[in-house]
Design a protein around this nucleic acid. Structure first.
Lengths: 366, 366
DNA sequence: TTGTAAGCGTTATCAG
DNA sequence: CTGATAACGCTTACAA
């Protein structure tokens, strides 16, 4: 005689809520076939209401949970989305993931997270792994090393829905969600100019990133609007470690015609810059103005003399996740492929005006 | 006649690196059985070296990747570990995850991340989901609502290796990795006392969390060592929003005998406290001293007048992941169940001494 | 040394 | 309306 698992171990024992029951257990319990159970469970098709009731009742009693692994193997939805980011321990990305997870949870999806660690090679591996884990869709922010995006094109050929966010690529025909980097950089630069600054340095990250190009474009557009000449000695690119920002700022300040303002592309650059300027005994914003791109919650922690352009990290994650799940859930209809720009906010926390007159905290949304 | 997938689509076409080949494809290609391929691939068993070579070569050529879903279904290792944290968008946890992911990647594991959002209910759901996704092991930091840990005990009964970190529970017989919260709080408090402070307020989080209790104990131990009376009106618990810290500080400062120093349990509390004190026109550290528990990279961003006890977030994640994977990989041997304390660092960034004499930056490891 | 077949949990197809 | 059966990709007795 053969005993089923539940008979041998703990039949319906409520103290074992994590005991894994399968569709088979329900079938055996009710003396019906697994296919009937399956049909009853997914409410589909022609099924005797009474049978269905029995199955549902039994499933509830056993605390039955469909095995997502088996579902994925079967080829149907895994209800998991993959997220690939360069670094989790970067406030922008962790906030974005927070937004993604919130939306995913509400809509019944899991989030599997991968870090590319800014490595192209790891990113390719991540895409493969996500693919082989049968994610229903993928959200990605490109590593700084990535220029070739064929791994993502391949994914699209396999009909895996794809949405890019923040670090995007014009080479992909995919929905892309970004902050309004151009607008943010434009208003920051414009604000500095309107405060009387004329030599505005721009410290930024790797030049080939989409976000870098957009911010640079916004910076240039503002200069142009006010008839200021673009001087490329004032623009510095790089992956600055915390030790490298100081020397860079020093070098700029030793120029024949040194900057009277700094616009930086990250909170880390802003803080490095701030410290370097303070070491030179310069007052901010009296002697030199400073505005940095930052992430929402980090902005709270920063020095009150620092004005910032705040990136809507959580919102970018939310919008990206929403778009992705929309794509997943109605694959049939062609959804528009578009680049969505989420507005940034310029927060002026203390006067950056030369006049010296104290200005109240002001907020401008691009 | 039947054409295999690769024959129909793109036979060995190198422009399709994400084409999914299976063990069957290799078998068909080589006219051998799938079991032979399987054996060759996992190097096991008695197998003709030549066959093995052929299989390996073919697998490499097709860029074969075993389907992890099928592997998990089979019941063998999924090479994925689950991580449950209260909030990803919290610098401590995102750094810890960073450490976890680094170790996991090196040892060939994936990381599936869940957020409990500080909700007990969600935490229970997360554990179930992780379990049904067949993670090989689970890392968890408890939600602030969690007091009952039977969901984790259930998991242990299913022989899923479990390691807790940061927010742990004495009720579980499991490896637990924590910062040396007692030691950190002790040195911070001791430093304040040695600087001449006598009325040290302690702003902290929910009283039932392990980390809260340990820090409070360290605080009390330091008071006791120096013969100072413990005054519970100086200790405030809560989940302070950014608007609530100010009033709390104000309330304390209106006491008949107000505090002359603050020791806070988070960077957010520290910043809130700092701002509230400044609004009262108090100089730090001259009028009131302030030390906060912070996370490593956040510490860089903070105001230079703020001394901090730095939590080794990344290291906690790394150690936790290492322990978990050790547990997973040698299930047979009983590994010691222990609580590992990772040292914290007290960083004094500007003098907190009453003497007013400037003191160089100093670092003490607990 | 290799092949055959069963099975992991589920669903889809096809017969009753 | 319900029950067999095959299939998803892989491993593993067991048989040859």
């Amino acid at each position: 005689m053969h005993f089923g698992k539940s008979a041998l171990t703990h039949p319906l024992n409520p103290t074992y809520p994590l005991e894994t029951f399968t569709i088979k257990d329900i079938a055996r319990e009710l003396n019906i076939s697994t296919s009937t159970v399956s049909r009853a469970l997914r409410g589909s098709y022609e099924i005797n209401p009474e049978t269905k009731r029995l199955v549902m009742e039994c499933a509830a009693r056993l605390n039955y949970r469909p095995n997502p692994i088996a579902l994925s193997l079967k080829g149907s939805a895994s209800r998991a989305i993959g997220v690939i980011v360069p670094q989790i321990a970067n406030y922008f990305f962790s906030q974005a993931i927070n937004g993604i997870e919130a939306i995913a949870y509400n809509r019944g999806y899991h989030v599997i997270i991968f870090q590319s660690q800014e490595s192209y090679e790891r990113e390719v591996a991540n895409v493969q792994q996500a693919s082989s884990r049968k994610v229903d869709g993928l959200l990605i922010s490109l590593s700084s090393e990535t220029s070739d995006v064929s791994h993502l094109k391949d994914l699209q050929e396999k009909n895996v829905p794809l949405v890019l966010f923040d670090r995007v690529s014009p080479e992909l025909e995919a929905t892309q969600i970004v902050a309004d980097n151009f607008g943010g950089a434009f208003s920051a630069t414009e604000h500095l100019i309107q405060s009387g600054r004329r030599r505005i340095a721009h410290l930024t990250i790797q030049p080939w990133l989409s976000i870098t190009r957009e911010r640079l474009a916004g910076y240039r557009a503002a200069l142009e609007k006010y008839g200021l000449e673009f001087d490329d000695t004032l623009v510095r690119y790089g992956t600055f470690g915390s030790d490298e920002v100081g020397p860079m700022v020093d070098e700029l300040m030793r120029l024949e015609s040194p900057p009277d303002a700094f616009f930086t592309a990250s909170d880390r650059l802003a803080v490095g810059c701030l410290q370097a300027l303070r070491q030179r005994q310069l007052q901010i914003p009296e002697d030199v103005s400073l505005i940095g791109f930052t992430n929402l919650n980090v902005a709270d922690l920063l020095d009150p003399s620092l004005s910032t352009v705040v990136q809507p990290a959580t919102e970018i994650g939310q919008v990206a996740a929403e778009r992705l799940i929309d794509l997943i859930e109605r694959k049939q209809r062609a959804l528009p492929i578009e680049t969505v720009k989420i507005p940034t906010e310029l927060i002026v926390r203390s006067s950056t005006r030369l006049s010296g007159q104290q200005q109240p905290l002001s907020v401008a949304r691009t």
